[in-house]
């Protein structure tokens, strides 16, 4: 459980509009146990479980009346959910979809169905594939033995089905700058035959398993009211997103372990404002909308 900061310096952020609707579709259940996972997902972590299909469909219906712009499916590993492919196909009738996956359990028949659904939709289907090292040594140290090769096979499979996956790289190797890391991944992916590599560098979130691997946030790493003066609030995910889980609707996918990040039972009751009492909000402040599909850049302080 995350501990909130309790003082009068905590700023409150209102939801401007629900642009991005996230589904924590497989909760904290994942086939991998990555050492940096900010919500400590694993095959055994059932703090959050699978969202039943009818609950997702109910939220989708509501989302249309709320004017939601984009949809995201995350976990855990979303492809563990038996209804994921059906739900993504259904969602593509309403808007663009992004799936955040480790690409290690993809099946050709699923990808064929998804490719067909995207072709019939006016909207994009994006895959964000997590890969945290540019070779087996650097990646597998964080994501587990054999995952580098398995993920590359998954990427190949996605490309063969006509997708242009975005490789999402958590900045675990702090000896390289984000830019160096970006170009190293681009080069590696081109060597692997991905001729149009798309790479997103994701800053470290010092939560969950990552706290054991490196460290937690330092006392000064937090957001205050003063810091949000003249700050473009749209850079904060809580300004325009909510995440549906099997245990209610939360403010963002990062703060699932914060008790007051649960805003309500359903979307309608979860549109209230949120106080940035958690130090992870500092990362969002620093890099801006880290959960978007494009890369984030650290702002000048």
């Amino acid at each position: 459980m995350l501990m909130p900061l309790i003082d009068d310096q905590t700023p409150v952020v209102h939801l401007a509009h629900l642009d991005h609707l996230w589904f924590q579709i497989t909760g904290t259940l994942c086939n991998l146990t990555c050492r940096h996972c900010f919500i400590s997902c694993s095959p055994h972590n059932n703090n959050f479980g699978f969202i039943p299909r009818d609950e997702v469909e109910k939220a989708l219906v509501k989302s249309v009346s709320l004017g939601v712009k984009e949809y995201y499916y995350t976990g855990g590993e979303p492809f563990l959910h038996p209804d994921l492919v059906y739900l993504v196909c259904r969602t593509l009738e309403l808007g663009p979809v992004t799936i955040l996956t480790n690409a290690t359990i993809l099946r050709d028949d699923w990808l064929q169905r998804l490719a067909r659904a995207e072709a019939e939709s006016p909207y994009s289907l994006e895959f964000r594939v997590s890969l945290d090292g540019y070779d087996a040594i650097t990646n597998d140290a964080v994501r587990g033995a054999g995952t580098f090769a398995r993920t590359l096979r998954g990427l190949r499979r996605l490309i063969d089905h006509g997708f242009l996956p975005i490789v999402t790289v958590t900045h675990v190797d702090e000896t390289l700058s984000a830019e160096q890391l970006y170009y190293r991944f681009v080069a590696m992916l081109q060597e692997q035959g991905y001729d149009r590599p798309r790479v997103k560098i994701l800053p470290l979130l010092r939560l969950g398993a990552e706290v054991q691997r490196t460290r937690s946030y330092l006392p000064q790493e937090r957001v205050t009211k003063e810091m949000l003066e003249n700050f473009e609030l749209d850079h904060l995910l809580c300004r325009h997103a909510r995440v549906v889980t099997d245990r209610g609707v939360y403010v963002c996918p990062i703060l699932l372990e914060a008790a007051d990040a649960r805003l309500g039972d359903d979307l309608t009751s979860s549109l209230s404002s949120f106080a940035l009492r958690y130090q992870a909000c500092y990362t969002c402040y620093l890099y801006g909308t880290i959960c978007a599909n494009t890369s984030s850049q650290q702002r000048d302080l």
Partner: peptide, 21 residues
Amino acid sequence: PRKINEFLWESTTSTAFLRWL
């Protein structure tokens, strides 16, 4: 209408959102 540099791409902008605008 809400942001001078917002990208409204055809494939990432839902009809529901445009109606809301």
